[in-house]
Amino acid sequence: MSSPLDLADARPGPAFTVTLDGREIEALPGQTVAAALWAAGVTSWRTTRGEGRPRGVFCGIGVCFDCLVTVNDRPNRRACLLPLAPGDVIRTQEGTGHDD
């Protein structure tokens, strides 16, 4: 069984911890929010503002805005573009992502 990291012979620095809704998740340096969540087996981190349906990555390149997520209390970040830093606090985003 191969993995993408093996395939590219990647030797990243040590993993660090971030949280998703309070749960600890390991992330590798250089990975985007979406990548770390995928690697942790998570495929959705937003619910839509109309029907409350789950969404995650769709286009993967910043065009579709389906992967919007709240990171460190800032809503509507594109998970597929945003690199993670140690200690980042990711929250599943509901609706518009703004409180009220």
């Binding site: 250089g30 979406a34 993967g60 390149i61 597929c80």
Partner: peptide, 12 residues
């Protein structure tokens, strides 16, 4: 393309 981009860019 998104699957490919995530693979190429983040190795996932």
């Amino acid at each position: 393309g998104g699957a490919q981009a995530m693979l190429k860019g983040s190795l996932v």
